[in-house]
Computed example of a mutant assay.
Amino acid sequence: MKNYVQDGKTITFTPTALVASGAAVLAGALLIVAIAEVPANEPGEFVPEGVFELPKATADEVAVGAQLYWDDTAKAFTTTATDNTPAGKAWAAAGNGDASVAVKINA
Rank of each mutant, 00 (worst) to 15 (best):
T85P: 01
A74S: 14
G44H: 00
I35A: 14
V64K: 15
A94Q: 04
G97K: 03
Q6C: 11
A66K: 10
T82Q: 14
A107G: 12
A92Y: 03
V38T: 15
T73W: 01
A87Y: 01
A87N: 02
P43E: 08
A40M: 08
T14Q: 03
A29L: 12
S100A: 14
A36P: 02
A92I: 03
K75G: 04
W91R: 13
A24P: 06
A99P: 02
T12I: 13
E53W: 00
E49N: 10
A99I: 10
A76P: 05
A29N: 15
D71G: 01
D7N: 13
T12Y: 02
Q67M: 10
K104V: 09
G28C: 09
A92R: 15
T78H: 02
P55V: 10
S21Y: 03
L26I: 08
V51F: 06
P55M: 07
A90E: 06
N3Q: 10
V101P: 01
I35P: 03
I105W: 03
K2C: 02
P43Y: 01
K2Q: 07
A63R: 07
D83M: 04
V47I: 13
D98I: 04
A92G: 04
F52L: 02
E42M: 12
K2D: 05
A20L: 13
T10A: 04
A34S: 15
I105G: 13
F52M: 00
Y4D: 09
E53N: 15
A17S: 12
M1Y: 10
A76R: 11
K89W: 03
G28Y: 06
A76Y: 11
K9Q: 13
T82L: 14
T85D: 00
L26D: 09
Q67H: 07
E49C: 08
T79M: 07
T80W: 00
Y4I: 09
T16R: 10
F46N: 02
A93W: 01
L18A: 12
A57L: 15
T85S: 01
A66R: 06
A74L: 10
T79C: 06
D71L: 00
A74G: 07
T12S: 14
G22M: 04
W91Q: 13
V47T: 14
A36C: 03
G28Q: 09
K2E: 05
Q67I: 07
A107N: 05
E37G: 09
A94Y: 05
A94G: 12
T73M: 05
L68V: 14
A66T: 04
N106M: 01
T82V: 12
V103R: 05
